[in-house]
Design a protein around this nucleic acid. Structure first.
Length: 632
RNA sequence: GCUCUUGUAGCUCAGGGGUAGAGCACUUCCUUGGUAAGGAAGAGGUCACGGGUUCAAAUCCCGUCAAGAGCUCCA
């Protein structure tokens, strides 16, 4: 698991050639990072700067500083930056020898406004990372000199639209063994208008954050008393999840899957066989011991460390909350003999798994400790692998297509050749990787190949989407596995009457229901299509006089299995509409005297507004049609 | 797990060493109104939890738990 540091650096470090290709906006942001460093150095001369690159939506500069920078300081920093910008200092490039650079760094002159008692220690270190023979350059704006390969905009006056966004912590060079620095994030644009637009977009993004909408729309709840990262699905959220499960269930039937149910725990030995325990013990909930065992151990005065050792070596038995569903499904497969004529066998289950994610990683529904995979395991012959993988990819495409999710990327996760965390024969890995590559090609979508992204038992194809904050999440996944069949000694009888090893495919089109729904909430900004909306129609009588007619309409819709409610409050129609809009109900039916006389309903759609009127049954048929077709 | 920030009513938040405030939501009453807020009254909180300082703590300090941002991690 240990990461090769040099390899990591090689990935991080840009060549001078790559740097030269920096876009105008990146240059501007990089230069603004220098302006910010200038301001921070002015305010706190003891500041020690590390790296300050442009990033996707702005830039940051890492700084080590006695003073803790808080949002209260932003105003002062920005004021100082504005001063530097007004002075319109030239970004002056100076090529120096390694010795000159080192001398300046030693005298504290780099990333500083003047010489200092302490050396510019990160710059000294960074100098050591510059390959021999590569040109070493400084950039100077006013008195602020920094070790920097550039490039930069001509003058500080070009940095006229910027804002400091937030401050967080980061390990020096991204290594948890290194000291933590304060990372000050900012953003910069060509002009104030573009900056304002960007800030506006951020505000919009905040509004569709699934954590906020989850509360507003009563979709889910996380309770301290239950535990971190454990999702309580409220009725509205449960409806959405149920619809999704029914939806995929229909396709599973079509594709010849069998539905199974398995318990949430299994014996430790099961996971010793699969390789989950003790190898991944740190990312699992601790084992559950049998009562008798526990008593015996406590009588013996067994220490924690010793218990841990005995669990590892297997002299103490216990149960594990399942971190994956595969071992249970494998045991179902193994409970009978199988002929090649039976294959492929496809076992599907909405299986809930538990993983001990680090507390700092948890958030909303996208990273949790208990989640339900729309899991399935396909047991097939070597010849069937390609076709089955295609079928799985097809399913993922149907899911994403039905929901109108086109903003995703496809990634083939390959093993990292330098890592030892993978199980199995390299030859099997090669075959599996080739199979996936072939399937991805015929998918007709662009894909990337990434080393080190494989599962421990095999390579995979992932569908990755972004949330509103720009973070990437793996949703759908298809994995080819030659290794677990080996570990469990699976077999089927071939046409030659000899036992053969089946190949396993793990796949989950949604990934996990929690993460998927979290992303889906943001995708739709809470405005779910009718088939998914927890409340599909709300009947709004204009006054109590029409309650009876309104009730009969609701009844007719309910009869057709439309999720309908009636707002029987004493509010005026304007208020009722407002509430229904806030609840993002797709259809509102306004019912008053006119409707009662004509036996029609006045339709108002959440987004399209007033849509005129229609007979009750005609409206019913229209809504039912939309639901059936799962239209967007 | 680490660093910083935060935790006050169901929700959004104000306040702040002298034992609690607003708006929305909720309950009741008045109003019976045609496409995004009619009016009135009422109810609702050990100010996350546990310690400490103080005559006095929701407020200051320490710890715990939880949330947010980032880093590290992610079968």
């Amino acid at each position: 698991m240990a990461e090769d540091a040099s390899n990591h650096d090689a990935k991080q470090r840009k060549t001078l050639d790559e740097r030269a290709r920096m876009s105008e906006l990146e240059k501007l942001r990089h230069s603004t990072a220098h302006v910010m460093a200038t301001a921070i150095a002015k305010l706190w001369p003891d500041a020690q700067f590390a790296a300050g690159p442009p990033v996707e939506n702005g830039f940051y500069y890492d700084v080590d500083l006695e003073h803790r920078i808080t949002p209260d300081d932003f105003e002062a920093i920005e004021a100082e930056m504005t001063r530097v910008v007004k002075e319109n200092q030239v970004f002056e490039r100076a090529v120096v020898s390694r010795d000159e650079a080192l001398a300046l760094a030693q005298s504290g002159r780099l990333a500083a406004l003047g010489e200092r008692a302490a050396p510019s220690r990160f710059k000294v270190d960074l100098l050591g990372d510059i390959p021999v023979g590569e040109e070493i350059s400084l950039y100077k704006n006013g008195d602020f000199w920094d070790l920097c390969a550039g490039p930069h905009v001509p003058r500080t006056g070009n940095c006229k639209a910027f804002k400091i966004m937030n401050v967080a912590s980061a390990f020096y060079k991204g290594d948890a063994g290194n000291p933590q620095l304060q990372r000050v994030y900012g953003t910069a644009f060509k002009n104030k208008t573009e900056l304002a637009e960007h800030l506006e977009r951020l505000e919009e993004a905040k509004k569709r954050d699934h954590r906020k909408l989850g509360k507003e729309l009563d979709l889910f709840h996380i309770d301290e008393a239950v535990g971190q990262g454990l999702i309580l699905w409220k009725p509205n959220g449960a409806t959405i999840r149920q619809e999704l499960q029914t939806f995929i269930g229909e396709h599973l039937e079509r594709q010849g899957y069998s539905q199974v149910f398995t318990p949430h725990i299994g014996k430790l030995d099961l996971y010793r066989t699969s390789g989950h325990f003790p190898y991944y013990a740190d990312s699992q909930f601790p084992p559950v011991l049998e009562r008798e065992q526990l008593k015996k151990l406590s009588d013996e005065g067994c220490s924690c460390g010793e218990l841990s050792n005995r669990l590892k070596e297997g002299s103490v038995e216990g149960f594990l909350l399942k971190p994956m569903n595969c071992p249970h499904h494998i045991k179902i497969f193994q409970s009978g003999h199988h002929s090649y004529r039976d294959l492929p066998i496809r076992l599907a289950e909405f299986g809930t798994v538990y993983r001990w994610e680090q507390s700092g990683e948890l958030g909303g529904m996208t990273r949790v400790r208990g989640f339900t995979q729309d899991d399935a395991h396909l047991f097939c012959t070597e010849d069937q692998v390609a076709g089955e993988v295609m079928g799985c990819l097809e399913l993922v495409k149907i899911v994403l297509g039905t929901l109108g999710m086109s903003e995703y990327r496809v990634r083939i996760g390959l093993r990292d050749p330098d890592s030892t965390k993978y199980v199995g024969d390299p030859a099997n890995w090669d075959r599996a990787e080739a199979a996936l590559r072939g399937a991805a090609r015929s998918l007709g979508t662009e894909f990337t190949e990434e080393a080190g992204e494989a599962a421990f038992y095999g390579p995979k194809i992932d569908f990755v989407v972004r949330d509103v904050i720009g973070r990437e999440w793996q949703l759908g996944t298809v994995q080819v596995d030659y290794n677990l069949p080996e570990r469990f000694g699976l077999s089927y009888i071939g046409s030659d009457n000899q036992p053969h090893r089946p190949v396993m495919i793990h796949r989950a089109p949604f990934g996990s229901m929690e993460r998927f729904v979290g992303v889906l909430i943001e995708h739709f900004a809470g405005k779910f299509p009718v088939w998914l909306a927890p409340e599909q129609v709300r009947v709004l009588p204009i006054s109590e006089k029409f309650a009876e007619f309104a009730d009969s309409i609701a009844g007719a819709l309910r009869e057709a299995r439309v999720r309908v409610t009636m707002d029987a409050s004493g509010d005026k129609i304007g208020a009722k509409i407002r509430l229904a809009q806030i609840d993002k109900v797709p259809y509102m039916l306004v019912i008053g005297n006119r409707e009662q006389e004509t036996q029609e309903v006045s339709i108002r759609h959440r987004d399209r507004g007033d849509e005129g009127s229609l007979g009750v049954m005609a409206f019913r048929d229209r809504v039912v049609g939309e639901i059936r077709s799962r239209s967007l």
